[in-house]
């Protein structure tokens, strides 16, 4: 409290700090994003119309949405499950598991892509040939893209939910149990409502991350036009082929969805969560 007082009354220093932070965020985030939007609409709606009339781009956008939604669903279900496991149970290897969960954030996505190819590759991967014999192609197909996207976004739900679970403690759950609730009833009626905001943030972050995944997807998708090319790959392709208008328009759409998610959450989020 005292510290906050001191910082608040420091006068000119406060404005300098504020100016630095604002300039930093402006130069690093706001301005570049604004330029993408500006370039998208340089010729009015021509760029946007151009990509939306292209069936291959529309397919890529659809693929991206499908992949992102499936990856988010998987990550939400397993993320909540793993969070409960880590917070509520003590077992050998728990710390190791906890550390392992940060790997997807620290390892380069391109490494993730290569690793997945080694495991699921159709010709020489560990599981790949077997799965392919069973009629399921993973690498260079949608399942591989989903796998890669899920991998890179894995920790986001967990990192949002774990602190909330730790904070609410176990007493409410124990009270529910002593009142006759089964484990499933306790989860649905007590635990889930208590962690709902953590889950929501995790879902939004995962969705934004999944929509934007590039490196891992690039390796495992095969980048086949109209089949396994996702929106981020379209952006690269168009940019390299000097179709900058198309690249900016697609990039704009990707950024728009991600920003919209975060804006919506910050609006519907209660100002102060009831404790």
């Amino acid at each position: 409290m005292a510290e906050r007082q001191r910082l608040r009354t420091r006068g000119p220093g406060r404005f300098v700090t504020r100016a630095i932070v604002t300039a930093y965020l402006f130069l690093l985030v706001a301005w570049p994003l604004w330029l993408v939007a500006q370039n998208t609409f340089a010729d009015g709606f021509d760029n946007l119309r151009g990509i939306l009339d292209d069936p291959d781009v529309v397919h890529a956008l659809q693929l991206t949405v499908v992949v992102a939604v499936v990856a988010v669903v998987i990550n939400t279900v397993f993320g909540v499950g793993i969070s409960i496991l880590i917070v509520r149970y003590r077992f050998p290897g728990r710390r190791l598991l906890n550390a392992l969960l940060d790997v997807p954030l620290s390892v380069s996505p391109i490494v993730v892509g290569l690793a997945l190819v080694l495991v699921y590759g159709g010709r020489s991967g560990w599981f790949g040939p077997g799965l392919e014999d069973a009629g399921l192609q993973v690498i260079f197909a949608t399942p591989g893209i989903i796998l890669a996207t899920t991998f890179v976004a894995l920790p986001l739900v967990i990192r949002e939910v774990v602190p909330v679970l730790e904070e609410i403690g176990t007493e409410q759950e124990q009270a529910a149990q002593s009142l006759g609730a089964t484990a499933a009833q306790t989860f649905r009626r007590i635990t889930l409502p208590a962690i709902r905001w953590g889950v929501t943030y995790g879902v939004v972050l995962s969705l934004a991350r999944s929509l934007g995944e590039f490196g891992a997807v690039k390796v495992v998708s095969g980048n086949v036009l109209g089949e396994t090319r996702t929106a981020t790959l379209v952006v690269e392709e168009k940019y390299l082929n000097f179709d900058q208008g198309g690249a900016y328009a697609t990039a704009f759409l990707l950024a728009l969805v991600a920003v919209a998610c975060i804006v919506v959450v910050s609006i519907i989020r209660p100002k102060e969560e009831p404790r």
Partner: peptide, 30 residues
């Protein structure tokens, strides 16, 4: 849940997202 005991905690363990009425009704709803 099968013991038929009521338990009251030192720090209340109130269900924070439920009204007083719904808190009290919890066991009956279950």
């Amino acid at each position: 849940r099968k013991r038929g005991v009521g338990f009251v905690f030192q720090h209340y363990a109130a269900f924070k997202h439920l009204s007083v009425r719904r808190n009290i009704a919890f066991g009956l709803e279950i």
